[in-house]
Amino acid sequence: MAELNGNNTNMEIKTLLNDVLEYAFPSNTHPLEKLQRFSVECQRKEAKKDGDYNADLHRIRIFNLSRDSKEILLTALHDLSHHIEYTFYGESAHKERFYNYYHNVLVTAIGMKLLLKMDLSLLDMKERDKLEKAHGAIHYWKIPDITYKENIFYLDVKNGYEFRDTLKDWGYKYLSLEEVWRGEFTRDSVWEEKSELNELGIDDESILVHHAVDFQTTFVYYLVIRNAYDHRLTLRKLGYKYGAFNVGKRNWVKKIDAKDLNEERAKVEGLMGVSLKVLKELPSSESTK
Results as ranks from 00 to 15, higher is better:
residue 14 K to D: 09
residue 97 R to T: 11
residue 78 H to C: 08
residue 4 L to T: 04
residue 24 A to M: 04
residue 79 D to M: 03
residue 147 T to K: 12
residue 138 I to F: 00
residue 288 T to R: 12
residue 265 R to L: 10
residue 73 L to K: 09
residue 24 A to D: 09
residue 75 T to L: 01
residue 180 V to I: 15
residue 190 V to Q: 08
residue 74 L to S: 12
residue 275 S to R: 13
residue 64 N to I: 12
residue 222 Y to H: 14
residue 229 Y to H: 08
residue 55 A to R: 05
residue 269 E to S: 07
residue 62 I to Y: 02
residue 87 T to P: 07
residue 221 Y to I: 08
residue 182 R to S: 13
residue 16 L to T: 13
residue 49 K to T: 15
residue 37 R to K: 15
residue 124 D to G: 11
residue 63 F to C: 03
residue 93 A to Q: 09
residue 156 D to M: 01
residue 123 L to C: 10
residue 262 N to A: 10
residue 153 F to C: 10
residue 77 L to N: 10
residue 18 N to Y: 01
residue 258 A to I: 02
residue 34 K to C: 05
residue 78 H to R: 14
residue 152 I to C: 01
residue 202 I to Q: 09
residue 11 M to F: 13
residue 234 T to F: 05
residue 230 D to F: 01
residue 105 V to I: 12
residue 271 L to H: 03
residue 181 W to G: 06
residue 148 Y to V: 05
residue 154 Y to E: 02
residue 2 A to L: 13
residue 137 A to T: 13
residue 248 G to P: 11
residue 274 V to C: 10
residue 99 Y to R: 02
residue 142 K to L: 06
residue 3 E to L: 07
residue 126 K to S: 14
residue 234 T to N: 10
residue 119 D to Y: 10
residue 244 A to G: 15
residue 278 V to N: 08
residue 210 H to D: 07
residue 142 K to P: 02
residue 115 L to W: 04
residue 246 N to Y: 01
residue 180 V to G: 11
residue 281 E to M: 03
residue 57 L to A: 10
residue 32 L to T: 01
residue 113 K to F: 02
residue 249 K to I: 08
residue 180 V to L: 14
residue 155 L to W: 11
residue 22 E to N: 11
residue 158 K to Y: 05
residue 113 K to T: 09
residue 110 I to P: 01
residue 209 V to P: 06
residue 54 N to V: 05
residue 132 E to T: 04
residue 35 L to E: 01
residue 159 N to G: 14
residue 227 N to L: 11
residue 194 K to D: 06
residue 250 R to A: 14
residue 88 F to K: 04
residue 178 E to F: 02
residue 103 H to A: 07
residue 254 K to Y: 05
residue 267 K to H: 03
residue 150 E to M: 01
residue 110 I to R: 00
residue 218 T to S: 15
residue 173 K to A: 09
residue 238 L to N: 05
residue 117 K to E: 05
residue 96 E to W: 04
residue 190 V to H: 04
residue 101 Y to C: 08
residue 246 N to S: 14
residue 49 K to L: 10
residue 80 L to T: 12
residue 264 E to C: 09
residue 185 F to R: 11
residue 239 G to P: 05
residue 270 G to S: 03
residue 71 E to R: 13
residue 170 W to V: 08
residue 274 V to M: 02
residue 265 R to T: 09
residue 151 N to R: 13
residue 189 S to W: 06
residue 76 A to L: 09
residue 246 N to F: 02
residue 266 A to G: 00
residue 227 N to T: 00
residue 83 H to R: 14
residue 125 M to L: 11
residue 96 E to A: 11
residue 33 E to T: 11
residue 13 I to Y: 04
residue 160 G to H: 08
residue 26 P to G: 03
residue 241 K to Q: 15
residue 143 I to N: 08
residue 36 Q to C: 15
